[in-house]
Write a protein that binds this DNA or RNA. Structure first.
Lengths: 343, 343
DNA sequence: CTGTTAGCGCATTCAA
DNA sequence: TTGAATGCGCTAACAG
């Protein structure tokens, strides 16, 4: 087992001082062309790579942005990573990705790890339950944080949100006005889990019902953690429980994926037997038959905005304050609601 | 903008020596209960978090394993991350995830970054073109590397591979023997891209043809980088070019996803108009209609094996040597090939 | 153009 | 049970 070589090792190999090697490595200051070549040869020979830790320790910063998301297997979050990564690398910074698996405990751990790593900023798609830690980091450590898809009243920082009220309203209204459905199911997150965002969606659903003189029926709303399995089970039990259900709205693609499976197993066809729409969409939409009516996907918009906002905040270097960006909702009408379908 | 507090800050706040704080933080050595409480209070107050960089610098290791994969949006790799992560965390180590986007340049950069970070080991799903760097790291820096899905003759380290020959053979044979197809298309990677692995698959395809007395037709084989778009385009042009094509094999799910889209747009139905199978599968399979005939998914097996192998190698602390694990292929017969389908 | 000094934050070692 | 000294690898500041 080899050891890692250091500036000093390279210096000795090249017969110069460590500082000269440093200058070559960082392309800073004047170095004689011949000396430079000697040094480069030594670096090559030893496969020297500068120690990030030592550099960070010296610099007291990391040049890293950490991204904490709840589910790396979910296309929505994977796209957020990819799109924000592009922006971040373009700004010469590096990235650490953390997968919290919808666990507040893990999220907390990763937040603290990010502080320990002295990251320059954090992009957080929160699972909730970490308001205290977030505030601590913001206030006591002064690390900028951009929060995606969640909203904490008492945490003053940057937020990027869907227009959840508006979006869910649009979906519900479409089912009512265009397809005359009255009995519409809604599968969404636990209220305690993703905080106020969930509430906004529910409000939009209710408002659309009210505006169209349909009475809200609590039995048609199902709650759960966002897993495909939950989407499957909640859909199944809702359909078995409510025989006359005319339509179903899923608050996200995870639930939507589970719902499609449930439909399939129950031999319930959409839109023939039931109209079906989901809040957001991801890649599989375009290959599912019939195609799904959804809101326009905003993952890349989320990612880019998050990265830009964060980098701006890092450069500003002033105390956190609350700023909220809301991405408008746009309805994409496809087949699963009953529109556009020709047999 | 606050600064990060240090051991010293906490020590001053608590009225003790830095070393005492260190002992509290690390739960090592003797500390008076009362002193401990004072220290904890100070830590809380300052939101002190130990500097990972300083610790690493001191320890000359990072306790981190880096995972470099070509596409984070691909379920196959996302699952590799998740499953290896479980094993790695259980062993008390942390993780860095790098998304190389099928770019050899980025892969090279991430390999060097991993060395710079003094990671304890690397799990690499390679895009190819980095053999030299890998060998350098292995030999000169002594960092263990496990390579997934690729094979480099001249790089002596751990490999985890599908049985590509066997797998593709099984798929091809099934189409021939059970469904009597003779004109079978095959969409696979560029030979130069993923090295010998691609060659093995192609060999399996050819061997199955030969064993069943079907002549190999070069025109039926399409090559490209593994993107959904390529899968789409290659499928489309193959179908338009070869009107009498009876069946199609995709070498992976990425191509498969593109193929499904192409079928859809061309109004080619499978298995009615064409039999369709893919090498591996991922989550969308179970919601696509008809369901896809594939080989059993091995992503989690890959991830777990990779992590275990790597950790074993790290603990061994001896020079790299070549070890290859091959995961057997198992055919999962579903609907898309023409089996099992009832109208 | 090159070298020396010092210190970033932490934990090992030794001393009290 | 606690503290002081030292050095990990690097680079800013200064000196030559």
């Amino acid at each position: 087992m080899k050891k890692f070589s250091t500036l000093k090792d390279v210096a000795k190999e090249a017969g110069v001082a460590p500082m000269t090697v440093s200058r070559v490595v960082n392309d800073s200051g004047y170095v004689n062309e011949k000396t430079r070549e000697e040094v480069l040869k030594a670096i090559e020979k030893l496969n020297y790579r500068p120690s990030v830790s030592a550099r960070k320790l010296k610099a007291l910063k990391s040049n890293i942005i950490s991204i904490i998301i709840p589910d790396i297997k979910n296309d929505f979050y994977a796209n957020i990573i990819e799109s924000s990564e592009d922006v971040i690398r373009k700004n010469g910074m590096d990235i650490m990705i953390f997968n919290s698996k919808f666990s507040s405990e893990l999220e907390k751990k990763f937040l603290e790890l990010s502080v320990s790593d002295r990251v320059d900023g954090i992009i957080l798609a929160s699972t909730g339950g970490t308001e205290k830690e977030i505030n601590n980091i913001l206030v006591k450590n002064g690390i900028p944080i951009v929060i995606l898809e969640s909203y904490f009243k008492n945490v003053n920082t940057d937020y990027i949100l869907h227009k959840y009220f508006e979006g869910t309203y649009l979906l519900t209204e479409h089912l009512i006005k265009t397809h005359s459905h009255k009995k519409i199911g809604y599968i969404t997150l636990n209220v305690d889990l993703i905080n106020e965002v969930t509430v906004e969606g529910l409000k939009g659903y209710k408002q659309a019902l009210t505006d169209n003189k349909i009475e809200f029926d609590e039995n048609l709303v199902m709650h759960g953690k966002p897993t495909v399995e939950n989407g499957y089970n909640l859909t199944k039990s809702l359909i078995l429980k409510e025989k006359t259900l005319q339509a179903l709205i899923c608050a996200n693609t995870i639930f939507g994926t589970g719902a499609v499976k449930a439909f399939r197993d129950l031999k319930v066809r959409f839109p023939d037997d039931i109209a079906f729409v989901t809040f957001d969409e991801y890649d599989i939409n375009s290959i599912i038959t019939p195609s799904l009516t959804t809101l326009e996907r905003v993952d890349r918009i989320f990612g880019e905005n998050a990265a830009n906002l964060l980098i701006k905040r890092i450069k500003e270097k002033k105390a956190a304050e609350k700023r909220v960006i809301e991405i408008p909702a746009r309805l994409l009408i496809r087949e699963s609601c009953g529109c556009l379908l020709q047999k």
